[in-house]
């Protein structure tokens, strides 16, 4: 079972879990803050809308198309 750090908090998830799912397993589900300051969450679930973009290990990634890996650091807040 991979263990990641979600906004600084440790979280263990099942193998094959997407980062999008981890956002709700370990937090309130939201992934980013919009240009007008609204919190947003994964929306299309399939790599199109880009609402789910988070920072994983310092790189911008789509949470819905990224699998959780052991030791991964995920940041949903700028």
């Amino acid at each position: 079972m991979p263990e990641l750090l979600l906004d600084g908090q440790p979280l263990k998830v099942d193998e094959g879990t997407t980062v999008a799912a981890a956002l709700l397993l370990g937090g309130d589900g939201s992934s980013r803050t919009s240009v007008s300051g609204q919190r947003r969450a994964p929306f299309c679930g399939m790599g199109v809308c880009q609402e789910c973009r988070v920072s994983t290990d310092g790189q911008r990634r789509l949470a819905c198309q990224t699998l959780c890996r052991d030791g991964m650091r995920v940041e949903s807040r700028p």
């Binding site: 997407t18 981890a22 939201s30 919009s34 969450a41 679930g45 399939m46 819905c64």
Partner: peptide, 21 residues
């Protein structure tokens, strides 16, 4: 439609398969 908690329909299905509780 931008509120967290709102998703696509097939989109929700995809997110659930990926482990969304």
């Amino acid at each position: 439609w931008t509120l967290p908690g709102v998703t696509g329909a097939g989109g929700l299905q995809a997110l659930i398969k990926g482990g969304l509780p």
